[in-house]
Amino acid sequence: MTIFEKLQHIDRRIMYLLLLLVIAWPLIWGMDMPIMVSPAVKGVYNAVEKMPKDKMAIIIVYWGSGTIAENRPQVEALMRHFMMRNKRFAVLAFDPQGSKFSYDSAKIISSELHKTYGKDWVHWGFRPPANLIPLLQSFPHDVIKNIGTDINGTPLGKLPVMNGIKTIKDIGLLADTTSVGELDYWIAYVHGPYRTPIVYGPTAVMTADAFNSLDAGQINGLLPGMQGAAAYEKMLGRKGFATKATGALSSSHLLIIALIILGNIGYIITRRRQEQQA
């Protein structure tokens, strides 16, 4: 078997091992890849910047371990941005795992930036997805009463972070990070009637649909999957997991492309030789 024939039949296990390597390498050691900041990501950044300080933001967490690599960096970048600008935020989870992940992330970032739980930020905990629509209908009128307690069971009224937050008018921004795609509900129940700005963090597969909402002005910005989070991290000037993971994303794509090219080189040369022999 010539080398060109071999190029056409690379063992899949070698390819799998290569894939693992090109993914693990940037994650562990980092890899500098050019990151482009699209207008959609700038929209998210500007929306956070523009939010008045006397209002509060809500970060929706509707994802679990399956899409953690895509959604968690989005949430972490958002949290970091809010804390850097001394703006208050609350996290509301519709996935039990996502609730835990986002709480852990927030605790780490908050200790890094010397913020206090209950004063600068709050985690409202997990609510079953079945409650989404009743909650959407009720909480705009009285946030503290309808949300009730935070993740630790403390009544919200007792937390200083909730001072002055009564109705949806006191909510300055909604950031929806999701692997489910329930954005339409937030648009219908919150953005539609109350004009609360929304920024959106979907997974990569859902991004194409989301551009429609962006065009229509229903959302102010969009973080397309992991890449969006990486661009956001770039704007914040702090390279986090998404920046590394985007390296992995790029390198894995490049690996596929390289393998396809190799296979075709082998194919073309072998065929040409066969033609010459014949």
């Binding site: 693992l20 693990a24 994650l27 562990i28 899409t67 794509h253």
Partner: peptide, 26 residues
């Protein structure tokens, strides 16, 4: 267009192994 979504999932799993389990990366 599907490749990116699938690679993201794989990166998530590799992150779980290297980060949450082995604590090599954060």
């Amino acid at each position: 267009s599907t490749v990116m979504a699938r690679m993201s999932l794989l990166i998530g799993r590799v992150y779980f192994l290297l980060g949450e389990w082995l604590h090599i990366i954060r």
